[in-house]
Design a binder for these strands. Structure first.
Lengths: 228, 228
DNA sequence: TCGTTTATGATAGTATTACTATTATATGCA
DNA sequence: TGCATATAATAGTAATACTATCATAAACGA
């Protein structure tokens, strides 16, 4: 596979982190630190120490830590949509395509060696726990106007279109998709931290297959399609 | 109706805010400030100014602002479960009870004059946007051990039990309930801020009835019950 | 009614966070 | 060689999230 890179919305950053070694170090270290300590504990100061650069240098790439988080998360959704497009190529049946979407969404990610400075496995965990913090803020509307949520909206739209193919009469395709995207994140989190809110067990080796079974059944039954 | 009050987990506070005028002022002002400015902008200093008391006085009631938010949100879920119990009394059909749950969950709250120091309408909006911030933190596990999420878990369990009555073979009752509880919050938020993620329109007068239609259809179809 | 808890007010102080600003040095490239 | 640009090094600031101390006032029990 060729080396790929995603060009993200330039409003996300002041200087493109993919364009320099320091920028790539920032991304790599940010993923590591947010993964291990959580977004609240994460500061540009700690990031600077991690990469051996002054705090002020990080500020030349990102206006603030919120934008940096958005960058990571936009990257993730862009990457996931890319994977979905890749897998669904030449598949005629919308049912199969929809099933694929759920599988790819839920599947535990492994590190993609084609993109050296992003650890996709850690990034998936970051998306699980931090995603909603990107939009549950005072600045949603201005961030939205700047297009900072486009990758997620694009993914939602794509999957909703498949649902419309299957059942053009179903009145809530976008709501259904945003619900399963959200639920996918949360069920995994619940399994680990609030197990009484879910029926998916952490220890189970088929954690991810159980989750995709839950989500698939929900989607297919809701839109009135036969689950094979 | 009698004047009711809910006794919440004492780990939430240092001194029970329901027990004094100052405590009630704190709750009332906190709801107002978090509602208008959001949890991130909310500080004990601003709260102190609002009620004309020093910051330090607030700290005598709540260890920190996170616990105060948890207090409000626990109060909300406790109140909602109380309302559900009240409405579902003597209703035999589990289908009807489940339908009631969705309606009560989604319904726009009006101020309950029986509880003078809590503005339920504002509190519902707070729950919509801030709920997940209570558990998507580093301290989930310790907070959970202290029982700070019990009201939400109890509600989830209660609705899951109704689902089990309807279809004892459905394997994911808790996951389904936590999914709809979450989705109810988010669809409303999306309608206002990220409309392309939902099919529910803000301006529509039947916003709440559309949402309950969406959720009910999803639940009933998923568990294989007939939607009347 | 006196004495004593107990709650609150008034005020001060601290470490950390989220930045901004300035100057110096190093690197690339025309 | 000259010049632009990126980064390092360092300093500084306002706000946040607390903690600590002491005075005063209300409440309550003997």
């Amino acid at each position: 596979m060729a080396i790929i890179s995603f060009q993200l919305n330039s409003n996300l950053y002041l200087r493109d982190p993919q364009s320099s070694q320091l920028g790539q170090n920032i991304i790599q270290a940010a993923v590591k630190l947010i993964y291990t300590a959580g977004f609240e504990e994460f500061t540009f100061k700690k990031l600077g120490i991690e990469i051996g650069s002054p705090e002020a240098s990080v500020y030349r790439y990102f206006e603030n830590k919120h934008r940096l988080l958005l960058y990571l998360i936009d990257w993730y959704w862009t990457w996931l949509e890319y994977k979905i497009d890749f897998h669904n190529q030449n598949i005629k049946s919308p049912l199969d395509r929809l099933r694929n979407c759920v599988l790819l969404l839920v599947e535990e990610k492994t590190v993609d060696t084609d993109i050296p400075f992003v650890d996709e496995q850690k990034l998936q965990r970051i998306v699980n726990t931090e995603f909603e913090k990107t939009y549950l803020t005072r600045q949603v509307d201005t961030d939205n106007k700047e297009g900072l949520f486009l990758p997620y909206k694009s993914l939602c739209k794509k999957i909703a279109a498949i649902i419309k193919e299957i059942n053009p009469k179903y009145p809530f395709p976008h709501s259904l998709v945003s619900t399963i995207l959200l639920s996918a994140n949360h069920q995994i989190y619940y399994a680990e931290h609030l197990p009484s809110l879910t029926d998916i067990k952490t220890d189970s080796k088929q954690k991810h297959s159980k989750l995709s079974e839950f989500l698939s059944t929900m989607v297919f039954n809701t839109i009135g399609a036969k689950v094979r």
